[in-house]
Design a protein around this nucleic acid. Structure first.
Lengths: 144, 144
DNA sequence: TTGATTTAGTTAGCATTGCTAACTAAATTG
DNA sequence: CAATTTAGTTAGCAATGCTAACTAAATCAA
């Protein structure tokens, strides 16, 4: 079934992954936009919800952005009532960022929206392909 | 090795793919930035080089962006000497966008840069995993 | 054929999200 | 205790997404 022809060269795989990632995100961005939150905020919020509260610096590292970028994102999340900041008892410079109940709710809604588009298409794939994509996501996260 | 436990639910796969795509692109963006071109222009240029010349509208559809966005991207590509526009002989309103030699060259360089980072890591994967990622990229493109 | 509509593209203006540079203030180190 | 490092902010720039409003060419309908 699978092509045994020739093994895909790393450069080709890199190209394909790059292109696929760009197009996937563009397709999903529409849904996130409808939510009124934006992909960067949503992604940071996701780290807070699924990975637990943490400092702005830790969040920046997790999201692979610079500190000023994350500082602004957190300020926006706070303004929107999706996260709160509490002072770090150990370190007077730092603060810890927590998701709010509304933040969790918005994340669920965003996820529901993606399910309504991407997952609807995923459902039409054979289970083996779905398992393959799941494994691929793990591999990609492992690459970085 | 692989978990045989339960098949991944579409919603979970959707989440994982979304997150993986975000983080992959953030990791690669640094390299594209070093090239001085930017991911959106690079992606459009890639369509022109590998898919052939086409109108701005067709390019916008291929890239899943709106016409004004692509209009500006093409203007920038032209300004940078990476693409040219010729009038469409069939349709006085439309124009066809072609990559220039320099555009092709820049694309090769960008690809080389990605190879230098992503593909270097891909090389360390077992060939089976690489084949899996290649297949995953195809599946993702097929979803949209 | 002409008048109305559609289609291709542009321009203007806004929002988001990335960056660096330059700063403050707290923590650490010598 | 002075010097340095670390956490975070502010300011300002660039890229890239959007909608609204326009021009001009093509098409459709009467």
């Amino acid at each position: 079934m699978t092509e045994r022809a020739s093994p895909p060269a790393p450069a080709v795989v890199a190209d394909r992954l790059h292109s696929a990632a760009i197009h996937l995100l563009r397709a999903l961005r529409r849904e996130d936009r409808a939510l009124g939150v934006g992909p960067a905020k949503l992604s940071a919020l996701s780290v807070l919800v699924f990975g637990g509260p943490r400092s702005i610096g830790a969040l920046a590292r997790a999201e692979q952005v610079r500190l000023p970028t994350m500082s602004r994102l957190v300020a926006a999340l706070e303004r929107d009532g999706l996260a709160t900041r509490t002072p770090d008892p150990e370190d007077g410079r730092a603060s810890r960022v927590h998701p709010t109940a509304r933040g969790r709710s918005v994340l669920r809604q965003g996820r529901a929206r993606r399910v309504a588009t991407l997952a609807r298409r995923l459902e039409q794939l054979p289970e083996a392909d779905r398992a393959l994509l799941s494994r691929a996501a793990e591999l990609i996260e492992g690459l970085t």
